[in-house]
Simulated scan of single mutants.
Amino acid sequence: MVIIHIKHKDESQFLIESTLGTPIENLVKSVVDMYNGRLKIGRICAEMEELAKHGTLYPPEILGLTEEQVEELKLTDPWGEKSIPSGGFTYWKDPVGRRNGKQPRKEMQDVLTNAVGDAKEMISKKLVLQECQKN
């Protein structure tokens, strides 16, 4: 077994374990999949943080419109009416206008925040340093 240290410039990204017999094409695919997966987890975490602050996203036809434009075009947010956060919500307007402002209560925000924290810990670049220090 071989442990490969993946870096971007001088910054450690992650470690990947492989064998000497692994073809380069397969190894490159594994590294790309791992790197893209970490980026995807980061994007999901960012969206979950925004969900905790401002509720669910508006549908695509409402995104980017002002409240006046939405009223004028008589558009509605059907999912916003169906997707009420567990335990209720408080209204906290999204300054960017991407979300409906139905902020979950503190208990649900804590659940989301803890899940984001756990996910970020699992993909943390600090894990590489810890593993390198062990060896």
Rank of each mutant, 00 (worst) to 15 (best):
M1Q: 06
H5V: 03
I6E: 06
I6R: 01
K7E: 15
K7G: 12
H8Q: 04
K9S: 06
D10S: 04
E11P: 00
S12M: 03
Q13S: 07
F14Q: 08
S18D: 12
T19L: 04
G21D: 09
T22L: 09
T22R: 06
P23V: 06
I24H: 07
E25P: 01
E25Q: 09
V28I: 02
V28C: 00
V28N: 00
V28P: 00
S30C: 14
D33R: 11
D33W: 06
Y35L: 04
R38W: 11
R38V: 10
L39F: 12
K40S: 04
I41V: 15
G42T: 06
I44V: 15
I44N: 13
C45I: 03
C45T: 09
E47Q: 12
M48C: 14
E49M: 10
E50P: 01
L51R: 14
A52V: 12
K53H: 07
L57W: 15
Y58R: 01
Y58A: 02
Y58H: 13
E61G: 03
I62P: 00
E67G: 03
E67I: 01
Q69T: 01
Q69I: 01
Q69N: 02
V70R: 07
T76M: 02
P78M: 08
W79Q: 14
E81H: 05
K82G: 09
S83H: 12
I84S: 13
I84R: 14
S86T: 15
F89P: 11
W92C: 06
D94M: 00
P95T: 10
G97H: 10
G97C: 13
R98M: 02
R98L: 01
G101K: 04
Q103K: 15
R105I: 11
K106D: 07
M108E: 12
Q109K: 10
Q109Y: 02
D110I: 05
V111F: 05
V111D: 05
L112Y: 14
A119M: 13
A119H: 11
E121Y: 09
M122Y: 05
M122N: 10
I123A: 10
S124Y: 09
V128M: 12
K134S: 03
K134F: 01
N135F: 06
N135H: 07
